[in-house]
Write a protein that binds this DNA or RNA. Structure first.
Lengths: 248, 248
DNA sequence: GTCTATAGCATGATAGAC
DNA sequence: GTCTATCATGCTATAGAC
């Protein structure tokens, strides 16, 4: 709130003492004006538009429509004419914003990765007990998945269309996430609050997978009427059970 | 072996008493000549070629190259000229085999779905105890994922490019798979061998997710040196643990 | 800052020779 | 049954008026 740049998320005030989605939304601003400001910050070098006011407004339209089109028919199969029609911005106008088609995909991946990085670094910087740490990571990750659903879905499905550098960065981020979980498990086992006989790396990987389901299988959860918080409770309890955690 | 048509897989002889991959390979023939015969059966209406001998050979080349190209750059971004170059078959020649580009994708989805259907129907038709039934489904599904990896990966990633009918068929198959797991859980709980307090539908869904990881995150398992059988053991034990199964 | 018009090229598909 | 040649269309991207 003081010296933090526009590209840095606010610190986690009151999180994860209260792991409700409302508390998460309040702690990090991943929607509305602050989100689009972040997009502008990441992407503005590729744009010919300098005026922040109208730029942010059109950026929002472009990204929203990109998600609607790409997440239903595929990014490569979405033509810029489709995007032009959907946004109401002419072809020439579009190029003043996106730089090129692949720059657009690139920006999406960058925004997602930097957001995850900011939120998780923030959580990891706090000195939390293994239990609290695990809880914070699980709930925060799912709330991020939920709030920025189309962003995450896009990154997963269109990953192969990104250039090699970004593709590897995305894979490394997932490996880091696995490793982060692994570390929490280990610390908890050392501290005697968790117990596990088996492959911790596989447990971490399958936890990551369970979290990714929230954006990969949205259709299924919608159909079943499962909410994020219900799913977060399920995922966390399942994990505690696997780790033989005794509640009290 | 007697009245079974070429399009039907042999029944599961000795499966799942022995859940090794070798036993699975022997029970169902999902590779080599029998696989390509299956492809020919599903796809031959769209082809102009009638001669089975050379047709099957070229079909194999076309599908293999499609996987190599589509699974690395995306199906839509793979041009038929790419495919022509990679297979060594001319553009005109290709069209005698594939019908159209989208027929090619369609055939892949059909082969995968009918294979899953055959194998699982076969397992479900046997009268197995909940424990044996669960074990059979987990191991069989993972071995299928493994043996037909590029097929599965293609179906997941390129699902949105299929026509509505096929997309829904694929989703229904996944829901059926979840339901099948759910039923086994329930039967085991009734029989008193499993115990679970929680949402069984979510447990089924997260089990399906864990199995899909084998083809979705191949890069990770390769990097970590995890084999299918190790992963199958992990997945099955994890599930037994969640279901409070007491081994003996 | 936004538009129209168009360049330049790649694509899916087919016709017809052999 | 396989090839070459070609068609019609759609694509990304840019130039230049306003």
């Amino acid at each position: 709130m003081d010296s933090a740049g526009a590209n840095t998320l606010s610190p986690a005030q009151g999180w994860p003492i209260d792991t409700s989605m409302e508390a998460f939304r309040a702690a990090w601003e991943l929607e509305g004006e602050p989100l689009w400001q972040r997009v502008f910050d990441v992407h503005h070098e590729r744009m010919q538009i300098k005026n922040g006011k109208t730029a942010v407004k059109n950026l929002q339209k472009i990204f929203d429509c990109t998600f609607r089109l790409a997440n239903s028919q595929g990014f490569h199969s979405m033509s810029l004419r489709d995007l032009s029609r959907e946004t109401g911005i002419s072809m020439g106008g579009l190029y003043a914003y996106i730089g090129s088609k692949s720059d657009l995909a690139s920006a999406i991946e960058s925004v997602v990765r930097s957001t995850i990085d900011d939120v998780l670094s923030d959580i990891n910087a706090q000195q939390l007990s293994p239990y609290q740490h695990l809880k914070a990571v699980i709930y925060a990750d799912l709330y991020m998945n939920h709030i920025m659903h189309p962003w995450y879905y896009f990154c997963f499905i269109e990953a192969k269309g990104l250039d090699k550098e970004q593709r590897e960065a995305a894979m490394n981020m997932e490996l880091q996430f696995d490793q982060g979980l692994h570390d929490i498990f280990s610390k908890g086992i050392e501290a005697g609050v968790f117990r596990y006989e088996g492959n911790l790396a596989l447990l971490a990987a399958s936890t990551t997978a369970m979290l990714q389901q929230w954006y990969l299988k949205r259709w299924k959860f919608l159909q079943r009427g499962v909410t994020v918080t219900e799913y977060a409770d399920f995922a966390f309890n399942q994990l505690l059970n696997n780790l033989s955690y005794q509640s009290k």
